[in-house]
Amino acid sequence: MAQPLIEVKSLKMYFPVGNNLFGRRRQLKAVDDMTFELYPGETFGLVGESGCGKTTVGRALVRLYRPTGGQIFYRGTDIAPLDEKAVQPWRRKMQMIFQDPYASLNPRMTVSSIIAEPMRLQQVPEAEIEARVAELIGQVGLKKDHLNRYPHEFSGGQRQRIGIARALAMRPEFVVCDEPISALDVSIQAQVINMLEELQQRMGMTYLFVSHDLSMVRHISHRVGVMYLGHMVELADVEELYSHMQHPYTRALMSAVPIADPDLAAQTKRIVLQGDVPQPIDPPPGCPFASRCRDCRPVCREARPELRQVAPGHYVACHLYD
């Protein structure tokens, strides 16, 4: 296989939360010990419930956060420990598309200045910027006379296109798409997904596609990682994962997706998980999923299962497969 574009090794992202009576800071372990690779030109889907840490992983990779521990090798260089200044040159290679197109565009800036902003920050000459903005607006399917308007004049789908044009401005190699379609109507979601796919084919970008929409992740991803409570519990090629899922959590998650086909839905048995996702604050030892798992055994509450390979390219972290 090709050299990975990004290698993530035991990535940890902890946030301090409050103090207890004795002044000991408690830790929210949003991401704990994640190891995976991203290959050039692929789309890696990251799925899980709210609060599982999938967005945090995306933000740590583009260094919006400074990781608590672990390494992020970008083409062989560890960018995890770099400070703000040192990380700047890497930033232009990595971009992010945000979930909420209403909150992620500055309402007081025109579309052209929104798209130009990353280039201005990276000191691209003004003459170049103008030509590039005109090129980008066409690439995302908007018109040149949209450039002097403000975000409020656009619909959600059009705003998301503006956000994508901004992300593409510096010709990034790697784009984190953080729930890019979940705020959009169904008929518009397909437009945006098709556009992301076309842009990837044309420019060979690598996507980290963070989403809770499992059918869309299946549609767009080459490989998929399933996260639970800050841990990667299963990782495989998309077809392998969706046809031979192993981890009890993956199975429950997939079976919970409503099927838009009444005959098929009637045949499928849903596994309904009990309870809510626990808080990742000072989590107990053992498997993070133990408290909701139907196949939980004593060992699951004592030792955390390692992510191990069960088939070529298919990794599962579960004591059932020891």
Binding site: S187, I188, A190, Q191, S215, R218, H219, I259, A260, D261
Partner: peptide
Amino acid sequence: WGLLNSIPKVHQKRGEKLVPIVGTP
């Protein structure tokens, strides 16, 4: 038709295009 075609089908393979509804409401 547009609503039904713009969601990925259960057994849809990667690379098959979604059929969006063009334009906006």
